[in-house]
């Protein structure tokens, strides 16, 4: 029974990991920007939701606030920080440090406004229902899995069937060629940031109602996103998706053997194993070298 329980919890966690990580993977894969502040996007979305919902303004305005906050942050960061850096140099390290700095600022600002402790949003949906004897599942688990399926399905449609989506994939392959075709790489990059940031929103909202939030959660989000991106294979959106699910399941099923404080160690062990044995990842084409 415990195993089934943990598998369902793992699926829920994994679905949210997949969403978050795909956002990062999409941005990194298409623009080559090491967007470490992706964790900060998550924090902003989650706390905007928490703040507006806590003020009693209702569910829809709260979701809208989270979405707007995340997209505005992602797109503005691209415009105001990444674009100027890329204009004069744009090495991996410079972008990473700038992004990292922004993440620190966001984490502390949120901490000053909302406090540094754990907070959760209480909804009637968080309460678990006994599915079969001994297995308790909250409706939020199904919402998480459904949301992930819808968002990732929409993303696949967007990437394969729309012009903007195809341009995004083209940017990942060859930015010069994109320019030759008269498309503006900066515009496409902005789209990547908007889409990548939107993907975080459902994960952030559902997390705020399930496991809860603190301002430092951005680091955990980044560890998961990086791990899933690497384990899945750089530049492979489907790979990242799979890896996110795998990490969530592994983390949850590990509770059969170890205590809960070791779950991040499980993520690390999987990441480490992949870096050493298979740096190209599950579905990656190029090697990490």
């Amino acid at each position: 029974m415990l195993a089934i329980q943990l598998a369902i919890t793992g699926l829920q966690t994994g679905a949210l990991y997949a969403l978050t990580a795909v956002g990062f993977s999409l941005i990194f894969g298409s623009t080559r920007i090491f967007h470490f502040a992706h964790g900060a996007t998550f924090v902003i979305a989650a706390y905007f939701f928490y703040g507006v919902f806590g003020a009693g303004l209702g569910l829809l305005p709260s979701i809208a606030a989270a979405g707007l906050g995340a997209v505005a942050f992602g797109v503005l960061l691209d415009r105001l920080v990444y674009a100027p850096i890329q204009r004069h140099e744009g090495s991996f390290f410079t972008v990473f440090v700038a992004s990292f700095g922004v993440g620190i600022v966001v984490q502390n600002l949120i901490g000053m406004v909302f406090g540094r402790g754990f907070v959760t949003v209480n909804t009637p949906l968080s309460r678990s229902v006994e599915m079969i004897p001994g297995v308790y599942v909250s409706p939020l688990a199904w919402i998480a899995i459904l949301c992930t399926a819808i968002f990732l399905g929409a993303l696949q449609f967007f990437l394969r069937r729309t012009h903007t989506g195809m341009a995004l994939r083209a940017l990942a392959d060859n930015p010069e060629l994109v320019r030759t075709f008269g498309l503006n790489p900066r515009m496409i990059a902005a789209t990547a940031f908007a889409v990548g940031s939107v993907l975080v929103v459902p994960a952030a909202i559902i997390t705020s109602a399930t496991t809860g939030l603190n301002p430092a959660i951005g680091h955990h989000v980044m560890l998961i996103s990086l791990a899933a991106t690497i384990v899945g294979g750089i530049g492979s959106v489907s790979g990242t998706m799979l890896a996110g699910l795998l990490l969530g399941l592994a983390e949850s099923l590990a509770l059969l053997v170890v205590d809960s404080q070791w779950t991040e160690a499980v993520t690390f062990a999987i990441l480490f194993a992949f870096i050493i044995i298979r740096p190209a990842g599950l579905l990656g084409r190029a090697t990490a070298h």
């Binding site: 090491f34 991996f92 390290f93 990473f96 680091h219 955990h220 980044m222 560890l223 990086l226 791990a227 690497i230 404080q261 070791w262 991040e264 160690a265 993520t267 690390f268 990441l271 480490f272 870096i275 050493i276 740096p279 990490a288 070298h289």
Partner: peptide, 28 residues
């Protein structure tokens, strides 16, 4: 070990993981 296998981007992830793991070990 991972530093030998991968370049900067990916090594950041490995070291982040090691740091997180070490904090757990230090507290346990």
């Amino acid at each position: 070990l991972p530093a030998l296998r991968v370049r900067g981007e990916y090594f950041v992830a490995a070291s982040l993981g090691l740091q997180v793991l070490a904090v757990t070990i230090f507290s346990e």
